[in-house]
Amino acid sequence: MMQPLLQVHGLTVTFPTPSGPVPVVRDFSLTMGREKIGVVGESGSGKSMTARAILGLVRPPGQVTARTLQLEDMDLMGLSPRGWQALRGKKAGMILQDPKFSLNPIKRIGNQIEETLRLHEPIRRGERRERALAMLEAVGIDDPVRVYKSYPHELSGGMGQRAMIAMMLVSSPNLLIADEPTSALDVVVREQVLRLLDTLVTDRGLGLILISHDLPMVARFCDRILVMYRGRVVETLDARYLDAATHPYTRGLLACLPSPATRGHMLPTLSRDPSWEAA
């Protein structure tokens, strides 16, 4: 059997508070190959923290424990800072929510893309430039040379997000995490960026973890969906059979979506049950 791309078992992230440690991710498990996994849940459900824990980005005082955390054949538990540096950008990348904040405001886009290459591949400056320009073209930018020379504030949100994707894919990682990659974009651009992401992931045969609070959107793009609630995965679904959801939280979320059938009626709101957390 082929080795899975990512194996996570019992991942838990806790933060100390004055009233004792509070777990924000509880017993998260996922085994995935080069497929598209969606992680949905409301704000504060632990989606982003899970992604950050997988890439070793939880900063003290946050604490990460797991029974297994393995990327390809590499054990990530107890990885040294140097080990993480060699892994991030090269083996796995992550796209953050809002390019307005996630790009360094005083560095040119080209320089920021080349930084990934500079950190991982001993190639010459001219070749770096070519790779960066090619990558800009690959993320659907018509005038790569202009964007290469631009500063982040000179780009639109959609352009910025494309540049971000370029930065994360230029060194050809196998795993890409996208943390709400389209939430900060307007609706038209959102669709374009999603389609681009889908194409890139499919063409390059990457594993994708798409984090979002938009259940139908995730269902369109992903193969499997994990539903998180209060730091826990409460349900794992095949994206083709959303209606087969059995967990009351997922059913509640689906019921809240507007559809032609419910036209003219008030949409229901979610009524929570403490027993969901134990599930």
Binding site: L55, R82, K90, L96, Q97, F101, E115
Partner: peptide, 17 residues
């Protein structure tokens, strides 16, 4: 605390960088 610092770490930059 800004997000572009996370981006730099995601690219594999060291803390010194």
């Amino acid at each position: 605390s800004k997000e572009y610092v996370t981006t730099a770490r995601l690219k594999g930059a060291s803390e010194a960088d």
